[in-house]
């Protein structure tokens, strides 16, 4: 049924979204378990879809994104695992770059390091060096 244009869009929870995609792909929860090599078990998927597990490990989301051919980034956002940089408090771990760090980077330090790595990449490209 077509949705009325003035009807507010209801954002599905992560579990509801995953259940709707799985059904769209015509897969049972057991099919998913088999197709992911048991990375995502039937029981675990059921708990995610029913909202009993709201924060599954990202490796589970990655396996589901691959199987369903949907965006991993979108699933991570729906799980609340990707957030705006401004939401990070002082003292919390930085998360834009994979580092082995003794201390947390500030937002400014991390942004500068991201920019510096971009510069190093650009120097490697044809015309760079």
């Amino acid at each position: 049924m077509a949705k009325k244009s003035d009807e507010p869009e209801v954002k599905l929870t992560l579990g509801q979204y995953l259940a709707s995609i799985r059904e769209d792909r015509d897969l049972s929860q057991r099919d998913v378990e088999k197709a992911t090599g048991k990375v995502v078990s039937n029981a675990y998927l059921s708990q995610i879809e029913n909202g009993l597990i709201k924060k599954p490990n990202p490796n589970i989301l990655h396996a589901l994104a691959e199987l369903y051919a949907v965006s991993y980034e979108d699933l991570m956002e729906r799980a609340g695992y990707i957030v705006p940089t401004r939401s990070r408090s002082a003292g919390q771990r930085h998360g834009r770059i994979a580092t082995f760090a003794e201390h947390n980077l500030t937002d400014e330090e991390e942004a500068k390091l991201v920019e510096f790595l971009g510069y190093l990449r650009s120097r490697k490209k044809p015309g760079g060096e």
């Binding site: 705006p84 998360g95 834009r96």
Partner: peptide
Amino acid sequence: FHDCEKTLDPEIS
């Protein structure tokens, strides 16, 4: 995260 103002949630990081 190269070209955006998003980051991993600190808990996931």
